[in-house]
Computed example of a mutant assay.
Amino acid sequence: MKQKRLVGLALASLLVLSGCSSTVKDNGKDVVASIDGKNILADDIYQNLSTSATGKQSLFTYVLDQLIRENFPVTDDMKENASDIITNIETSYKNQYGDDADTQLESALASSGYESLDTYKDSLIQSLQYSEFLKKYVKANFDEVFEDYYKEETPRFISLIKISMADPESPTDEEKEKLEEVKSLLKTNKSFSDIASEYSDDDSKSAKGNIGVIDSTSGLSNLYGSDVEKEALSLAEGKVSDAIKGSDGYYFLNCTSMQKDKIKSELKTIDVDSPLLVYDDYMVYLVFNTYELKYSDEDLQKTIKQIVDDSLKAREDQRKENS
């Protein structure tokens, strides 16, 4: 295990964005702020943080953030990736809102807690750093992680056919005709993939309807609607669904495979979009435990250890409930 050091954590940086600890002293203790002549001490901040659940989590988050920054610094690829995402967002808003794009985008950012695209870009870069933190662990423990993922998520390969409709509640005659035609074709010997290639209105048409490995993290609800997601996550191997009314049309789903080896092979390459990085809310604590940190404060060390131990115990209990 490679030893990492976090010496002298600057608690004041939890409140000061610059991350710099105060050099002002009061009886040998660091002063982080002063209100009406009364000093606020770093020790007092730590005491308050370490005695509440939210405060303890804030301490852990801070330590985790420093660990990730030290081991996975920002790279040019991360910056470029974040810039590409920003460009795609801007293009999407311009296509959707035209001259009102900037106003709509500013509103969306504000509602999500971001002051500007620059601050959103910074958060994207931090997310990419976090992904690298998880990726290293998943790659090193792929077999173990995949076994847990397969058991917890019961993933499957799904293909779909989409019949677009301006208003699924009131389809036009032309839309109805196309829907009925696809229904009829699905009762023939013509393959689902061939029908998808010819009739589907989804982007997956070029892949014969294949949308890849699907699980609860895939976000199908956002793309197609909650009913489509529910069916996709329960459809048995080799089965084709009835027509499902989605957010912008009707959908037919086909579960092409649930074979473990096939899914494992598909997910062997670990990238930022891998479901293996996001399916387990407790993975961050598993990864954190693979680093040996040295603390300058024993109470802080005990607090962090307790948070990690409690989280891993909750993970163990969850696995027992699901077994």
Score class of each variant (00 low, 15 high):
residue 8 G to M: 12
residue 8 G to Q: 13
residue 12 A to L: 05
residue 13 S to R: 08
residue 14 L to A: 07
residue 15 L to P: 03
residue 16 V to M: 14
residue 17 L to H: 10
residue 18 S to L: 03
residue 20 C to K: 14
residue 20 C to Y: 11
residue 23 T to P: 00
residue 27 N to H: 13
residue 28 G to D: 10
residue 28 G to A: 10
residue 34 S to N: 13
residue 35 I to P: 02
residue 36 D to I: 04
residue 37 G to F: 06
residue 39 N to D: 12
residue 42 A to T: 09
residue 45 I to E: 06
residue 47 Q to R: 13
residue 48 N to D: 12
residue 48 N to W: 07
residue 50 S to G: 00
residue 52 S to Y: 01
residue 57 Q to K: 10
residue 61 T to V: 01
residue 63 V to T: 00
residue 63 V to L: 03
residue 64 L to S: 04
residue 65 D to L: 06
residue 66 Q to F: 05
residue 68 I to F: 04
residue 69 R to K: 15
residue 69 R to Q: 12
residue 69 R to M: 07
residue 71 N to D: 11
residue 71 N to L: 08
residue 75 T to F: 03
residue 76 D to C: 02
residue 77 D to V: 08
residue 77 D to E: 10
residue 81 N to S: 14
residue 81 N to V: 10
residue 85 I to E: 07
residue 86 I to S: 03
residue 88 N to P: 00
residue 88 N to A: 15
residue 88 N to L: 10
residue 89 I to A: 05
residue 89 I to Q: 09
residue 93 Y to H: 05
residue 94 K to I: 11
residue 94 K to W: 03
residue 94 K to R: 15
residue 97 Y to M: 05
residue 97 Y to N: 02
residue 98 G to I: 06
residue 99 D to C: 00
residue 99 D to P: 03
residue 104 Q to S: 11
residue 106 E to S: 09
residue 107 S to V: 06
residue 108 A to H: 02
residue 108 A to L: 02
residue 109 L to A: 04
residue 110 A to F: 04
residue 116 S to K: 07
residue 116 S to G: 09
residue 117 L to D: 00
residue 118 D to C: 04
residue 118 D to I: 09
residue 118 D to R: 10
residue 121 K to P: 01
residue 122 D to S: 15
residue 122 D to F: 06
residue 122 D to H: 07
residue 123 S to H: 11
residue 125 I to P: 05
residue 126 Q to T: 14
